[in-house]
Amino acid sequence: MNDAMAQNFIEIKNVGKDYGSGDRSVAAIRRMDVRIDDGEFVAVMGPSGSGKSTLLSVLGGLNKPSRGDVLVDSLDIYGLTPEQRADFRSEYVGFIFQSYQLVPYLTVLENVKLPMAITGLKNRVQDEMALAVLERVGLGEKVSRLPDQLSGGEQERVAIARAIVNRPPILLADEPTGNLDSDTADEIMNLLTALNREGLTIIMVTHNAEVAALASRTIRVKDGVCIG
């Protein structure tokens, strides 16, 4: 990471995203300009269909915007080829998806090791790293289980462990507490807050104002534009 870019680590400039074409075109994002510093914990709030999830996918290099630029660590990520963008995601971004999105036929340990399958790291190193993050999220005892043998909160923890195992600088979380009871949601948020304190930049989409309050900044989105 470039220290000079600690400020404006992530920069979204005049970004717009339309789905469909011609008369049937719908703007998911009309125009957004967002700057996020390194180490920030940003909550993105807004009603359903406001464009917050689209914003997250654009930020993560998953969804090419119709207009504008996205710079991460001064890298124009949509100026890259699709394969280079895959490398960018591997190196820079950890995703926590809504509904956990674990691979059903892989064990907890294997799910967490998944991002390392393409890194060339030795299996022993992968095991050490994966077990360390699983201990961190409190799942050290359940490494051999399959996802359907875990509770919702446990699956969320596996998803977090998988997102951070490669030590990416950015964590993108889509409704990480959406499917959890309040106690489990608190535990997850404690974990995310702790990770942020260690320097991880977190951008989290949420409907929940209490959860958003734990972030250092909230971006409100409505009808595809940032309203504050």
């Binding site: 993560g60 998953l62 699709p82 394969e83 895959a86 490398d87 960018f88 995601r89 591997s90 190196e91 971004v93 950890g94 995703f95 998806f97 999105q101 691979v103 059903p104 998944l114 991002p115 399958a117 393409i118 998988r162």
Partner: peptide, 15 residues
């Protein structure tokens, strides 16, 4: 979805 996860966490098309 699973392929989407692989792609999101950085798997290339070749992978």
């Amino acid at each position: 979805r699973e392929i989407g996860i692989f792609r999101a966490i950085g798997f290339r098309q070749g992978h």
